[in-house]
Write a protein that binds this DNA or RNA. Structure first.
Length: 415
RNA sequence: GCGAACGUAGCUCAGUCGGUAGAGUCCCGGAUUGUGAUUCCGGUUGUCGCGGGUUCGAGCCCCGUCGUUCGCCCCA
């Protein structure tokens, strides 16, 4: 049997209703803050991701779907959304119309081992804000995320965590300090951490093992070694969040997997998602635009994992709406008349599921029930002769004969 | 890339000690020759993931493989 490849799934109509709900909310809520949608390509030159995400990250080293096109260029399916948006920003010289606020949605691709909340094709909704350098932008963006998550009905289960990763000036000396401390404690750290120490030492602070956690409590943390500018930025950010009444928790051990982040990092996590507990994550990337060859422009953004949001949502609350009318027909002449009647009603804005498969009235009533129809309109030889139909209110269980000329009015006043 | 569990009807699952496969649900029909969701009656649905091995005999035991799930890693 043909089937989807590993880690890739159909999203069937029942579930699509939830996706459409989430996407419609994004359009509305992000619109309130002045963000408009951008649609960037699903694949780019491999080099773009290598430079933006970081050539030594796991994502670039071993998780990208990379292929050569017929001209010999190395291309990759996008593993995340920010790189393309930044490329677009630079390519179109958009630094001349700051601030530039965009959001995107769509599939991302990473060759990973699937597990709960993690697929090889997964979907993100993300926002990027170019221009503002101050913490006001950070606070507003976080407020927007929480506004969105609250509006889709999730806020209660979620925690906003924030941290500062410093900038080039203060992170470099801190990093050296941390590595020195970790080397001293290397014997007490797990194998993974000893490996991480060299590649991404900050991540050692975030190890899940108890022994490692205990060992690193004494290690220096970034927040204690921020330069004056970074410290002030973080301090003001916290103040803005408090002014807005957005609850947050400072997590000094939170790290970022992608190289481009500096200063503000934040994450929205949830219990109930298993090991992959981040619903949304983002941060500031002031140096990326310049690094990608554009005019130096500070920026901040975030992305949300759609599959993870869907896992958390109560599906009962987002049911696909049923049809207004199921049109049951009995006999060949009724089928003809039904075809015309259905079309007429639809032109009047009434949704109609027309019986297309013959069958007894009983079986057609079943189909009407399954289609969650508000009304069933019945049309048989008797009604054809009398130029009428019978309309049954499915919830009430009562029915009434209605003249053909009055069907539209009858339904419109009751829907 | 590493570890573990699980693959039986469209779906959720049972299947004892190795003896030729079952329930619920869904779907279809009838009870009601033109009335749903409830009730009652009847019916259809199987490469037991796939391939090999052991055995007189394998859904069950063994090996491999593919898939799913949950962790590790990493990350949304």
């Amino acid at each position: 049997m043909m089937q989807t490849v590993r880690g890739v799934h159909d999203i069937l109509p029942d579930e699509v209703a939830i996706w459409q709900f989430l996407e419609a909310k994004a359009l509305t809520i992000f619109g309130l803050y002045g963000f408009t949608e951008i649609r960037s390509p699903l694949f780019e030159k491999t080099e773009l991701f290598a430079r933006a995400v970081g050539a030594t990250t796991d994502i670039v080293e071993k998780e990208m779907y990379t292929f050569a096109d017929r001209g010999g260029d190395s291309l990759s399916l996008r593993p995340e959304g920010t790189a393309s948006v930044v490329r677009s920003f630079v390519q179109q010289s958009l630094h001349r119309q700051l601030p530039w606020k965009v959001w995107y949605r769509g599939p991302m691709f990473r060759y990973e081992r699937p597990q709960k909340g993690r697929q090889r094709q997964f979907h993100q909704i993300g926002c990027e804000l170019f221009g503002p350098v101050g913490p006001l932008a950070d606070a507003e963006l976080m407020a927007m995320v929480m506004h969105y998550l609250g509006d889709v009905g999730l806020q209660a289960a979620l925690v906003l965590e924030i941290n500062s990763l410093g900038c080039l000036a203060c992170r470099t000396p801190y990093r050296a300090l941390l590595i020195a401390a970790l080397r001293q404690a290397a014997a007490h750290l797990c194998e993974d951490c000893n490996h991480r120490m060299e590649r991404n030492p900050l991540r050692v602070l975030d190890c899940k093992r108890e022994t490692c956690r205990a060992t690193v409590t004494a290690a220096p943390i970034m927040l204690d070694h921020l330069c004056l500018g970074c410290r002030d930025h973080f301090y003001q950010l916290k103040g803005h969040l408090e002014t807005l009444g957005v609850p947050y928790v400072v997590n000094p051990r939170m790290v970022r997997g992608l190289d481009y982040y500096n200063r503000t990092a934040f994450e929205v996590t949830s219990v109930g998602l298993g090991a992959q507990n981040a619903v949304a994550a983002g941060g500031r990337y002031d140096g990326l635009v310049e690094q990608m060859g554009g005019t130096s422009t500070p920026a901040i953004g975030f992305a949300m994992g759609m599959e993870r949001l869907v896992l958390l949502l109560d599906r009962q609350k987002i049911l696909a709406r049923g049809m207004d009318v199921y049109l049951a027909t009995l006999g060949a002449s009724a089928e003809n008349a039904g075809l015309v009647l259905a079309e007429t009603l639809r032109r009047g804005g009434i949704s109609v599921e027309l019986n297309l498969g013959g069958g007894s009235l009983k079986s057609q009533m079943k189909r009407a029930d399954r289609a969650q129809a508000r009304f069933t309109v019945m049309l048989g030889d008797t009604e054809i002769e009398k130029r009428s139909v019978i309309i049954k209110d499915m919830a009430e269980g009562v029915q009434q004969e209605v003249a053909r000329s009055e069907i539209m009015d009858y339904l419109l006043t009751r829907l």
